[in-house]
């Protein structure tokens, strides 16, 4: 049984349909990359999985438990799925350590000392332990994004949703952040990531989905998608990305 089953999900903002029947299965320890132009629905899909946006129809099942519909305990669901955003969204009034330990202490019921020890351990893994007492505004974009990943990981989630996490970074900072994601993938973290980094997608993804106007137009292994795309739209998209030097 797949770890995450997304079945025929529809979603519109007002009269504007954003998702038009999305179906994806994600196995445990799998890395699924969502590619596609801006506005194709990648971010919206991730938000729907985390119940930050309600869906209009369809069903999302996580580990055998339906997480869409009325009466779902969204807070419990979100504890099991971490999310990292394009613009980091760290809490500016808290230190790095407080950012990371807020949810484990408040929601997870972890003791403060244990939460901080875990946070320091995670920060050390991403080379940020020296910044534990710093405030986010004193960090670079890449450092903030590393903290944001640690913040999501501190809840020990079963899956991670990464929403174009390198899109707002200066080019020379992208590498550090991608390295962390690479390590998470190697550790077997289940991940669903929207990305414009095609080279990276090619390298870590077990499955690549090409979204176009709210639908999955093509899916397959990275080899299939990047070397032998079947759809004309996919070819055009990859061609444009190639022309901009990002593949």
């Amino acid at each position: 049984m797949p770890f995450l089953e997304i079945t025929d999900v529809h979603k519109s903002y007002g009269t504007n349909p954003v998702l038009k029947g999305i179906t994806i299965d994600v196995e445990a320890h799998e890395v699924v990359c969502l590619i596609g132009a801006s506005g194709s629905g990648k971010s919206t899909l991730l938000k729907c999985i985390n119940a930050l946006e309600p869906i209009d129809s369809g069903e999302i099942v996580l580990d055998g438990d339906p997480i869409t519909g009325v009466g779902v305990d969204v807070n419990r669901l979100r504890r099991n799925i971490g999310m990292v955003f394009q613009s980091y969204n760290l809490f500016p009034h808290m230190t790095v350590l407080e950012n990371i330990t807020l949810a484990p202490i408040l929601v997870g019921g972890v003791a403060k000392e244990a939460a901080e020890a875990h946070a320091i351990e995670l920060l050390t893994q991403v080379g940020m332990e020296a910044k534990a007492t710093a405030h986010p505004d004193s960090l670079s974009g890449g450092q903030q994004q590393r903290v944001a990943i640690v913040r999501a990981m501190a809840m020990r989630p079963q899956a991670l949703l990464l929403d174009e996490i390198t899109a707002a970074l200066d080019p020379e900072l992208v590498g550090d952040v991608l390295e962390i994601v690479r390590e998470l993938a190697a550790d077997g973290m289940t991940m669903l990531l929207a990305t414009h980094e095609m080279g990276f997608a090619k390298e870590v993804a077990s499955q690549v989905c090409f979204l176009h106007q709210g639908q999955i137009l093509e899916r397959g292994t990275p080899e299939q998608i990047f070397t032998d795309p079947q759809e004309e739209r996919t070819r055009q998209f990859l061609h444009r990305v190639l022309a901009s030097g990002r593949l």
Partner: peptide, 28 residues
């Protein structure tokens, strides 16, 4: 709104988000 998203995505409830994330920033 991204502060709401970030806090809610970590599993904080509406009230917890208001108390720990939104109000402290808004008071300033």
């Amino acid at each position: 709104p991204s502060q709401w998203s970030a806090a809610r995505s970590l599993g904080l409830s509406y009230g917890q988000t208001l108390r720990k994330v939104i109000v402290p920033q808004a008071t300033r």
